[in-house]
Structure formats: structure tokens, C-alpha cells
Design a binder for these strands. Structure first.
Lengths: 237, 237
DNA sequence: CAGTGGTCTAGACCACCGA
DNA sequence: CGGTGGTCTAGACCACTGT
């Protein structure tokens, strides 16, 4: 493992364990370089990741301040999978597959997955548990033409890893829509939603490199643990 | 201006002018370092920005590939607020400027707008009313160095029209963050929030083409009238 | 003023790719 | 094998912050 990644994980862990708390200063870059027996530039690469995650804020001439953001306010940016995020943040996570069925598309799904009636699709329902709390409910639909086989084991690991490395699919782009909804009965049943009157829903359509739609997903998040980050280029006019 | 930012802008311009086209290789990092008479690490910082923008893709052992600049040509991401929809649908909309003041940056704003203490900034607070309902609360902060003058009339019309056409500013890009928060007292006071226990907050930092931050905005939405659409490219790793 | 983060340099070694 | 990008080092100067 690269040194700056290791240091990054170590710092995330220390912040999680409140070794430094909100509004406190991180040791200076020179101090950290000495502590980790490395160069300042390497420390800076690790700190860059903390800044990207919103965990610290750098102030010129002063130092790096802990922002006190909850670690679990993890960003959903681009097409990042749950597994990648969890790994990146070194969090204790658990994925439970509660439903894995092969079915024919009904009316609602036909339009969402842009398939014809009677086309076969996979349905996967998974809860995502972080530090013991069920925070996310993912409902995935895959076009069986693109994904002929799925197992519970694959769904518990990273589906994307399977798709890209085993099946050789190339994911190209996704269209996303974020809305806030009232929790359904299933949401209340399968997530820890006590006291919350909303869920944040990310609806995604994912396309392959031949521009064919192969996945429709609803990722339902508890609002306090949701954060979306975006880097948008100004469009002309 | 920092060297790596200058190089970054230069490369963006060259890509825009099709000096290199889609699927072509950029010169290697060593070549670029020679061309720009700088070190390789500095070139790498410039290339990092191009990667973040999705303009190039780096491949270990091969080089940097131009991914195509459609990204610069059409919107990859945007916000569809109910106000914009309402305007398109010819609904009755109203903007009310409730606060327009010139003030010095306090601690919180210093970091958000990345300015020094005692720098002057404009604060604008506006409510957005659609079909008689106050749905959106916008709080804008502008760096006075970039925007020396603002009037109530300008704020009631389009501020951006004024910035780009009157002041000649060029907006380059924005960093956005979407979170769900509990309504503040001001939210309840200035918006119609009966029965809603959350607001969706879009926090934006807007940058000019010299990469300087000139605006920080919080756009606070009633959750039932909120929708965010995004077109995302695959981000590897 | 001394200390901080921001930038920059000129090396170095590595894993990977294509010929 | 040579060239590529990925990482790392040990310096350096700067602008900014506090006291």
C-alpha cells in the first residue's frame, strides 16, 4: 500500500476516534512528516484526501482544522459504489441481500429500464449497514440480457467488480436524479429510520459503452447520513 | 498566478481548440515538463485538474488520453429547481429580496468564501415564490472585489445576467454539495414549511475563469419541490 | 518575528505497457 | 528493453497568520 494512502487511513481513523475533535488543529505538516517519518509532500497528499472528504479544512498561515463533519456523511459523487466508499473510509460495513429474484418486467419497470414487456430482469434488494445502523436501502434492476447470472455472493460483494472484471462490461455513464420522499413501509421496515420523516432517493440509470441501458437503481438514504458532492462546469450562455 | 494553474488553463484551451482530439495521446509528462520549462511534479498537478474535469484519462505505462470535450459543450450537470420548471411551465413566480447588505466577513464566511478577515462581501437573501407558495430561500455571498456594486433591482432580476453581461465576469465552474438539514428558524419564518421537517440545501462555491472563488450560495428548498439531475461519467477507482 | 500552508524543483525508484 | 505514469524525497522560497 502506498504511504500516503496508509497515512490517510490512519488520520481518518484517528479523527473518527476523536483523537482530535471539532475546531481543533491537526498537527502541522512538518510535525506530521516527522511523526510518520516521511516527507512533507507525502503528508500533503494524504491531507488532500482529507480535504476532498470534507474532514479537514486548510487555512494558510494557520493550519488544518477539523471540520467536525460526521464521517458517515459520505459523498455520493459520480458512479462510486458503496463498496468503494466504505473501503476508502475504512468503515465497518455490512451488506445484507434481502431479495434476489429473476422476474419479468411489469409496467413501471418497462419504462424505467426501457425494455419490452416480458423481458427478463434481475431484481436485487440490499440493505447497507454502517457501524451497526441500517442507513441505506438499495434496489437494483438489471437487464438480464446484459447480466445473465447473479448470485447472492456476488451481490454481497461488489456487483460492479463482477460486472467489469468477470463479465467484461464497460460502464460508460449514468443519469441520476435526486429527490426527497416520504419513507415507504418497506423503508421503515428495512432501515433504521426512527424519527426521520424523509428519505433521500437517488434514482440512477446506468448505461454501457454502447449506450444501452442495463441498470436502474434506487438508492434510498437516511437524510442525516446523506451528502452529494458535485463538480460542475459552467455551461455556456 | 501559480504555474500549474497557468499550465492547466493552457492545456484546456489547447484541447478546446482541438490541438489534440479525442482518443489522441497528450505528450508525456516528461515532454510537457520540458515544453513548459518546469518540473514533472508541477505538470502532474496540472494534469490532475484535467483528470478531475474528465478531459483526460491517465493510463499507467501508456500515457494520458484525451477523452473528448463534449463535456465542455453541453451541460453534464444542472439543477432543476421548481422555479426553473415553473418558469418553463408558465407558472406565476416571484422573487423577493429580503436582505441586501455590504458587510465584513466573519469567521464562518472567511472559510466559505476563502477570503481574509475584514474583506468586504455582499450578502443577498431572496425568497422564491411559486403559485403563491414560498418554496426556496437563496442566500448569496459575493466577494466585493469581484462584484463592487449590487442593487435590489439587479437581485430581483438575474444576478448572473448582470455579472456576465454588465461586469464581464466569466464564470468557470462550481463545486456543489447537497445535504438535508433541519429547518432553521429563518427557514420557517421565510418559507412555507408547514408540516415539513427537512429542507434540502445546495451549497455552492462558484469560481471565475482565473479559478478564484467569488460566490458562496446556500439554496434552501422545500423537499417536495426539489429535484436534482445529474449526468455522470464513470470515475474509475 | 517564527510558524503555517502553497508552490516548486531535481532528482529517484517502482510497476506497468508496448515493441 | 525503453518509455510511461505513480510514488517519494529533501530540500527551497513564498504569502500568510499569529504574537
Amino acid at each position: 500500500m502506498q504511504k500516503y494512502i496508509t497515512i490517510y487511513h490512519d488520520l481518518v481513523e484517528k479523527i473518527r476516534q476523536k483523537q482530535w475533535i471539532k475546531d481543533e488543529m491537526l498537527p502541522s505538516e512538518n510535525e506530521l512528516a516527522t511523526m510518520y517519518e516521511t516527507s512533507r509532500e507525502t503528508i500533503r497528499k494524504a491531507l488532500d484526501l482529507l480535504v476532498q472528504d470534507g474532514l479537514i479544512q486548510k487555512v494558510r498561515g494557520k493550519g488544518s482544522v477539523i471540520t467536525g463533519l460526521n464521517i458517515l456523511d459520505f459523498p455520493v459523487s459520480g458512479l462510486v459504489s458503496f463498496k468503494e466508499l466504505a473501503t476508502k473510509m475504512n468503515l465497518e460495513t455490512k451488506t445484507v441481500v434481502t431479495d434476489l429474484t429473476c422476474m419479468k418486467a411489469d409496467g413501471g419497470l418497462q419504462s424505467k429500464l426501457e425494455v419490452n414487456q416480458n423481458e427478463w430482469i434481475w431484481k436485487v434488494v440490499r440493505t447497507r449497514e454502517i457501524s451497526g445502523e441500517k442507513i441505506i436501502l438499495d434496489i437494483d434492476y438489471f437487464n438480464k440480457k446484459a447480466v445473465p447470472e447473479l448470485t447472492k455472493e456476488i451481490c454481497e460483494e461488489s456487483i460492479y467488480n463482477y460486472l467489469e472484471n468477470e463479465l467484461g462490461l464497460t460502464i460508460s455513464f449514468a443519469k441520476k436524479e435526486i429527490v426527497v420522499e416520504e419513507p415507504t413501509d418497506r423503508d421503515r421496515q428495512m432501515m433504521d429510520l426512527e424519527g426521520f420523516s424523509n428519505v433521500v432517493v437517488i434514482k440512477s440509470k446506468v448505461y454501457l459503452d454502447d449506450a444501452s441501458l442495463f441498470q436502474y437503481t434506487e438508492s434510498r438514504h437516511r437524510p442525516d447520513k446523506f451528502k452529494f458532492v458535485d463538480f460542475a462546469r459552467r455551461t455556456h450562455n
